[in-house]
């Protein structure tokens, strides 16, 4: 079955991002297709490569990246939410005159239409939030 996942919260602050990760991983391991993971609200903070948790804690960002590498997962950060919260890729840096980027590999920034499309294309939308 084709699933879409929406993540509304940032890493560490709230368990939503952990739940979304474990759910997505379990779905992929069971052979389901995950059409897209869409990060919204503070969820876009899951996609900064500058995250540096203590060594004895999980690295939530790298965990997403590894999952995406293994399963060719589409990880999308909402552009409007990302701009508000300072998550920047090269295109956004150029467009908005920012002096750095911080997006993690395997993530991409795109519009809210990607969430709507995921909901239309998928058999189920599963939302994780606060």
């Amino acid at each position: 079955m084709k699933l879409a996942v929406q993540v509304n919260e940032g890493p560490y602050q709230h368990e939503a991002s952990d739940s979304a990760y474990h759910f997505t991983k379990a779905a992929l391991e069971k052979g389901h297709e995950v059409f897209r993971v869409f990060f919204y609200h503070d969820g876009v903070l899951n996609g900064t490569r500058l995250t540096t948790p203590p060594q004895d804690d999980r690295n939530i960002v790298e965990r997403w990246v590894a999952l995406a590498e293994k399963y060719d997962l589409d990880l999308v950060l909402c552009v409007a939410a990302a701009q508000r919260r300072g998550i920047v890729d090269e295109g956004e840096a150029e467009r908005n005159g920012k002096d750095a980027t911080n997006i993690a590999p395997k993530f991409r920034i795109s519009g809210l239409g990607q969430l709507i499309e995921a909901a239309i294309q998928s058999d189920r939308l599963v939302v994780f939030g606060d």
């Binding site: 079955m1 991983k25 779905a27 069971k30 389901h32 599963v126 939302v127 939030g129």
Partner: peptide, 20 residues
């Protein structure tokens, strides 16, 4: 249920409503 069971519940039902 474990996470695999969570996935099964999502598949078995018509849709998922998250009451946050």
């Amino acid at each position: 249920v474990d996470y695999a069971g969570f996935v099964d519940l999502v598949v078995e039902n018509d849709k998922v409503q998250a009451w946050l």
